[in-house]
Design a protein around this nucleic acid. Structure first.
Lengths: 186, 186
DNA sequence: ATCTTTGTAGAGTGATTAGTCAATCTAGCA
DNA sequence: TGCTAGATTGACTAATCACTCTACAAAGAT
């Protein structure tokens, strides 16, 4: 429903601004332009709302990556494409990206099922595994490489939103930084 | 006072477990074994407590780095030492490290003064600047390199606490991973 | 036309919260 | 000893919170 989207959008904005527990459900309903009861009609508890918002946000990022994939290509090109597209999305949706980071370091993370977490990481894990199997990437634990990738993206994003670069400079830095990262794992 | 330490220790533990706003001051006082009023005698507001705890934790990390510094050495050795010592500290104080990460992605971060933030980053920024000035490190924005370093540490830490490695394996991985990072910036 | 399901509203509720306050305790000092 | 200042207490309060409940509207379904 439309109201569900309004609630999720309001929650996203307020959570990033005031934190999860720092945002009352009443404020979320108000910001979304719906009644208090409507919020609880769609989300059984506040925690359900937080989890649903995380999954929704992550799904939208995943969809962006699918829409911009380069399937017929070398492993390096596909990995670079994924890396860059995450960065582009993160820069264009910086509230969403900050919410994801906030969620990751919060106690809510443990409420996510292992399956849901694996489902989200799978495309990247597969890519890394393929790289190792074809001896392009050096043999190291897959989740170690994933962790380096993931946090490298955080680092670059953190820098880019503080530095004030033109889009051209930004894109060049994203390209260059991927090459640095690539050099690290081959 | 002793009670201040008890309060900070209790707050640290509960914040990491339940989040900032998810932890009532009454529970903190209870866990610390002091009365509710005592907490507010030492910390004017709950927010003051959060900020004080962050500064205290960061100061203890900084002290660990000072205690284990290698001042008379090459830049690479000094940087590697800092990198490793942060990792050792983070692994031994993983609640503290998780609190720092939680704080960094929370809205509380903006309550920290710019001076306090700069004060904390200065030793590393100086080291990176020295490396660039002496043409050992490639000329890139100092805070870009800092950001990569910082998030690289997060990535390795994240992997190490999930993987179950022996201390020897851990230390070897820390050494190796620094070399990867070093290769990226020279 | 009537029944049923679903959406929406918003006042209401009991529990919980951050922060206060007056009272007592402790220790150092004159 | 008597005085003062800070430490400590825990009952208290006003506000706020997550969530419930009842009522009503809209829209299919039969």
């Amino acid at each position: 429903m439309d109201k569900v989207k309004e609630i999720l959008a309001a929650a996203l904005k307020l959570f990033v601004e005031y934190g999860f527990h720092g945002t009352p459900t009443s404020k979320i309903a108000q910001e979304a332009g719906v009644a208090n009861g409507t919020l609880f009609h769609y989300f059984k508890t506040k925690e359900d709302l937080v989890i649903a918002l995380y999954i929704d946000t992550k799904t939208r990022l995943a969809q962006h990556l699918i829409d911009n994939a380069l399937p017929e290509n070398t492993l390096k090109a596909r990995l670079k494409n994924r890396y860059s597209q995450v960065m582009y999305w993160a820069l264009e949706h910086s509230t969403e990206f900050r919410f994801i980071q906030q969620f990751h370091t919060s106690p809510f993370l443990s409420r996510l099922s292992a399956e849901e977490m694996y489902r989200q990481m799978k495309p990247d894990l597969d890519l890394i595994e393929e790289g190792i199997a074809t001896k392009i990437i050096q043999p190291r634990p897959v989740d170690f490489i994933f962790s380096l990738f993931f946090n490298h993206i955080n680092g670059l994003h953190q820098y880019l939103i503080h530095a004030n670069l033109s889009t051209t400079e930004q894109n060049k830095l994203i390209e260059d930084t991927f090459d640095l990262l690539w050099g690290m794992i081959i």
